[in-house]
C-alpha cells in the first residue's frame, strides 16, 4: 500500500494552478489537484487513483480569498481551501448555520482539520455531507480554467458515481451557497461513528410562522449521486403544521417510496428505504426546531 510515483508541483496562485494543469496535460501527463488530500490520498495509497502529477494548492492557503468565509448579498461564500473544521467552528448567519451543524458528521477531527469543502464537492461521493448541502442550499461552484471562470450550479454539478462537472483542467475557486435555510438539518446513519453514511438526509423547511409552505429534501446513499426528492418536496409544498407528525410521516414516506436505492447483501434496498424514512423524519423534526435560541 504505497502510492504510485508522481511528479509534484506547487501552485502559488489560481492562475499558476490552471497553468500547471494545462501544461502538464499538454505534456501527456495526467495531473490532479491536491488540496487537503483526505479523499485522494487513500485512493492513491490503494492505487485506485494514480495521477502522474500532483498540483498542490497548499501554498494558496496564503491567498486570503481561498480560506475566507464571507456573507454578502444573502449568500455565503466559502473559499476553496476552507476546511470542514473551519466551517464547524465558524459563527455563521442563521440561514447557513446548518453548514456548521452538519460538520460533526464529516469523518473525524483530524480529517475535518485538513479536508476542504471544495475537495469534497469535486470528489463527488454520493453520501458526502457537502454534496447534500450543495443541493439543499443551491450552491454555485466557481471554477477557473484555461478559458476563465465559470459558475456551476449544484443541480448541474453531480454526474453520477464520483463524477462531477468540474473539468480536469479547472480549479475550484470558491463555493457560494445562495439559498439561506434557517430551518434546516442534516442527519445520517452509519454503523460506526464517523464513517461514510449508509444513508444521509438533509431537509430545509420554508416556514411561515409554524406553517410549512415548502422545502427541500436531499438524500445521499440512495443513488449514484446525491439527489433531491421532488415527491417529498411536493408534500412540503402542499403545506401543513410544522409540528404535525402526520406531515413529517408523509414527507418521510414520500421520500422512501420515491427512491430506488442500491441493493447489496450487507445493506439491502429495503434497509436503505427504511433508513431513509427514519432519517428524513428526523431531519424534518430537527429542521423545524431550528434556529434554536
Amino acid at each position: 500500500m504505497k502510492p504510485a510515483a508522481f511528479t509534484y508541483h506547487r501552485a502559488h496562485d489560481v492562475a499558476d494552478a490552471v497553468g500547471l494543469l494545462t501544461d502538464l496535460a499538454a505534456a501527456g501527463e495526467d495531473p490532479k489537484i491536491i488540496a487537503g488530500g483526505q479523499s485522494l490520498m487513500p485512493m492513491m495509497t490503494f492505487r485506485l487513483a494514480r495521477p502522474s502529477a500532483l498540483v498542490d494548492l497548499g501554498p494558496l492557503r496564503r491567498v486570503p480569498a481561498m480560506t475566507a468565509i464571507r456573507e454578502e448579498a444573502g449568500a455565503l461564500t466559502l473559499g476553496a481551501l476552507v476546511t470542514h473544521h473551519a466551517v464547524e467552528t465558524a459563527t455563521l448567519p442563521a440561514g447557513f448555520a446548518v453548514l456548521a451543524r452538519a460538520m460533526r458528521w464529516v469523518g473525524h477531527l483530524p480529517i475535518r482539520s485538513r479536508g476542504t469543502v471544495a475537495g469534497s464537492l469535486v470528489h463527488g461521493d454520493a453520501t458526502a455531507e457537502w454534496c447534500l448541502l450543495a443541493l439543499l442550499l443551491d450552491a454555485v461552484v466557481v471554477a477557473e480554467g484555461p478559458g476563465g471562470r465559470r459558475e456551476i450550479p449544484a443541480d448541474e454539478l453531480f454526474h453520477g458515481f464520483y463524477a462531477t462537472a468540474v473539468e480536469p483542467d479547472e480549479v475550484v475557486v470558491e463555493v457560494r451557497f445562495t439559498r439561506p435555510a434557517p430551518h434546516a438539518a442534516l442527519t445520517e446513519f452509519a454503523r460506526r461513528h464517523g464513517d461514510f453514511a449508509i444513508v444521509d438526509a438533509a431537509v430545509a423547511l420554508d416556514l411561515d410562522g409554524d406553517r410549512v409552505t415548502g422545502g427541500r429534501v436531499v438524500l445521499g446513499g440512495v443513488a449514484p449521486a446525491p439527489v433531491r426528492v421532488p415527491e417529498a418536496e411536493a408534500v412540503l409544498a402542499a403545506g401543513g403544521d410544522a409540528g404535525d407528525d402526520a406531515l413529517v410521516a408523509a414527507v418521510a414516506d414520500a421520500a422512501a417510496t420515491a427512491i430506488d436505492p442500491p441493493d447489496d447483501p450487507q445493506t439491502t434496498a429495503t434497509y436503505r428505504r427504511r433508513l431513509t424514512r427514519t432519517l428524513v423524519a428526523d431531519a424534518c423534526r430537527q429542521a423545524a426546531r431550528e434556529p434554536q435560541r
Partner: peptide, 24 residues
C-alpha cells in the same frame, strides 16, 4: 493502516491533529 482510519500515525500539524499517512 495507511489509509487514514486507525489514527496510529496522528501528529499535530500547525497545532491540529492530522493523519501523517494522509499527508505527503
Amino acid at each position: 493502516c495507511e489509509h487514514g482510519v486507525c489514527g496510529a500515525c496522528t501528529v499535530l500539524i500547525d497545532g491540529a491533529p492530522a493523519r501523517a499517512c494522509l499527508v505527503f
